[in-house]
Simulated scan of single mutants.
Amino acid sequence: MSLVTRAACVALGLCAAACIHGPQSPSPPADFATVEVQRSDRAKLYADCIGEAVAADRYGRAHDEDTELVVFTCTGPAARSFFEGLGDWSAGAGSQVEADGRVVRSTNPVVRDLFGVDYCARSSAGEHSCSVSLNAGAFLRP
């Protein structure tokens, strides 16, 4: 292959790569319309837990390098209902484990630790507690 042909192939390849990885089209403008919501028994489990946590002053900030959370912790009837509500779901999702003398059920399988995971636990004494995390973003930073 001659030097001119080789140079033409390289130039053509660079042009094709530029087309594939060219500038992205601009995003459409943000839509600030109110989001439609529907009643949900599972959403009520969250609401009852958060309400109980607020009433008992059991909420606070948790964070890592790039995530800021408000964590609400409920106990008692709200936690027991949430724990029971997670039963079939956790069994099917593979997100129920026994650890440290308690049964832990989470809304999603735990990958590394419980940071940012919504979960409920039942102790060997039959006491229930749940933690619900709200990703609040940079606003929460001190």
Rank of each mutant, 00 (worst) to 15 (best):
M1G: 15
T5P: 02
T5I: 10
R6W: 00
R6P: 11
R6K: 12
A8E: 00
A11R: 09
G13I: 07
G13E: 07
L14H: 06
C15R: 14
A16E: 10
C19P: 07
I20T: 13
I20L: 15
I20Y: 14
H21Y: 15
G22H: 01
P23C: 06
P23S: 13
P23K: 10
P23Q: 08
Q24W: 10
Q24C: 14
S25V: 09
S25L: 13
P28F: 06
P28I: 00
P29L: 03
P29E: 03
A30L: 05
T34Y: 08
T34P: 10
T34I: 07
T34M: 03
V35A: 03
E36R: 07
E36Q: 07
V37C: 08
R39G: 06
R39C: 05
S40W: 02
R42S: 10
R42Q: 12
R42C: 11
A43I: 13
K44R: 14
L45T: 05
A47W: 11
D48F: 04
E52L: 05
A55R: 00
A56L: 14
A56S: 15
D57E: 10
R58G: 06
R58A: 03
R58P: 10
R58Q: 13
Y59G: 15
G60R: 09
A62H: 15
A62C: 15
H63F: 14
H63M: 14
E65M: 10
E65Y: 08
E65T: 10
T67P: 01
T67C: 11
E68T: 14
L69P: 00
V71M: 07
F72S: 02
T73G: 01
T73N: 06
C74I: 07
C74T: 03
G76C: 06
A78I: 01
A79Y: 01
R80P: 05
S81D: 15
F82G: 01
F82A: 08
F83C: 01
E84V: 13
E84N: 13
G85M: 04
G85Y: 06
L86P: 01
L86V: 03
G87N: 13
G87C: 11
D88F: 11
D88R: 13
D88V: 12
W89Y: 12
S90M: 02
A91C: 12
A93N: 07
A93I: 04
A93L: 04
S95V: 07
Q96L: 15
V97Q: 05
E98K: 13
E98W: 09
A99V: 12
A99R: 15
A99N: 11
A99I: 11
A99W: 08
G101C: 03
R102P: 03
V103W: 05
V103C: 02
V110A: 07
V110R: 04
V111K: 13
V111E: 11
R112W: 15
D113I: 03
L114I: 11
L114W: 10
F115R: 02
F115G: 03
G116W: 00
D118P: 02
D118Y: 05
C120R: 06
R122F: 08
R122A: 07
S123P: 01
S123I: 08
S124L: 09
S124C: 09
A125Y: 12
A125R: 11
G126W: 03
S129L: 06
S131C: 11
S131D: 12
S131W: 06
V132R: 02
L134R: 09
G137T: 04
G137C: 04
A138K: 12
F139Y: 14
F139E: 10
R141I: 05
P142I: 04
